[in-house]
Each structure stands twice: as C-alpha cells, then as structure tokens.
Simulated scan of single mutants.
Amino acid sequence: MQEQFTAQMSMPGGRWRLYVVLMNTTVPWPEYRFGPTVPTLTERAEALNVLGFVPVPGAEWEWTEDSETHDDPASPVVLIAAIRLHAVRERVRR
C-alpha cells in the first residue's frame, strides 16, 4: 500500500494556497499558489500533479469552516479544504 498524505487548501492573504502536509521531515512542504478565485477541481488536480501527487481513489475535497480568532463568533471565517493523496513519484527522504 502506498503512503498517504493530506493536501490542504486555504486562502491566507487573499490568494488560495494548496500545500501537502509532510510529517516527520524537515523539508519544506510542497505548495502551489492560486489567485483570489476558488480554484476549480481541474486546476487543483493539475496543481497536485505538478507537485507530484494524485488523490487516492474515491477521495473528495472536504471543506471545513474555522475562524481567524479562536472562540470569537464575530471573527472572519476561514475555509479550509482537504483531500487524501498519494505520491506519483518519490518525494521525500525522511
């Protein structure tokens, strides 16, 4: 079975940022930046491919709502998307 990873996407600073979470490593997490418009499924798939990853079969993007300031109901909302992945080529030496 291939090792699985998680990609997350959020919009800090007005631009969407997609990054792959790499645990137990000191290398920078692979990331891809988009513009201010929510990237389409095709754009996200292409970005993941550029980074060397593909979604695991059957995986779908899941969206979570958070807030900029914890426990403040008046705080602006932060949307975070996540999907499970596997590498299409060797990525990281631990």
Rank of each mutant, 00 (worst) to 15 (best):
M1T: 15
M1W: 04
Q2F: 08
Q2L: 11
F5W: 15
T6G: 02
A7S: 04
A7R: 02
M9H: 00
M11Y: 00
P12R: 09
G13R: 10
G13P: 04
G14D: 04
R15H: 12
R15V: 13
R17S: 06
L18S: 08
Y19V: 09
Y19L: 14
N24V: 03
N24Q: 15
T25N: 13
V27Q: 12
P28E: 11
W29H: 10
W29A: 11
W29V: 00
P30M: 03
P30C: 03
E31I: 00
Y32S: 06
Y32N: 01
Y32P: 00
R33A: 12
F34N: 00
F34K: 01
F34M: 02
G35R: 11
V38G: 00
P39M: 13
P39R: 06
L41T: 12
L41D: 15
E43S: 11
E43I: 01
R44T: 06
A45M: 03
A45S: 12
E46P: 00
A47K: 07
A47F: 05
V50S: 11
V50D: 14
V50R: 14
L51M: 13
L51D: 03
G52L: 04
G52S: 06
V54M: 08
V54L: 09
P55R: 12
P55Q: 11
P55A: 14
P57D: 10
G58W: 05
A59G: 03
A59K: 02
E60Q: 13
W61G: 06
W63C: 09
W63E: 15
W63S: 09
W63D: 03
T64Y: 09
E65W: 13
E65I: 10
D66T: 06
S67A: 12
S67W: 01
E68R: 05
E68V: 11
H70V: 10
D71S: 14
D71F: 14
D71K: 15
D72H: 02
D72P: 02
P73A: 09
P73H: 07
A74P: 01
S75R: 07
P76T: 04
P76V: 01
V77G: 02
V78A: 05
V78S: 01
L79V: 03
L79W: 12
L79K: 01
L79S: 03
A81M: 04
A81K: 02
A82T: 10
R84K: 08
L85C: 00
H86Y: 09
A87T: 04
R89A: 07
E90N: 14
E90Y: 10
E90L: 04
R91W: 03
V92D: 07
V92E: 03
R93W: 09
R93Y: 06
R94G: 03
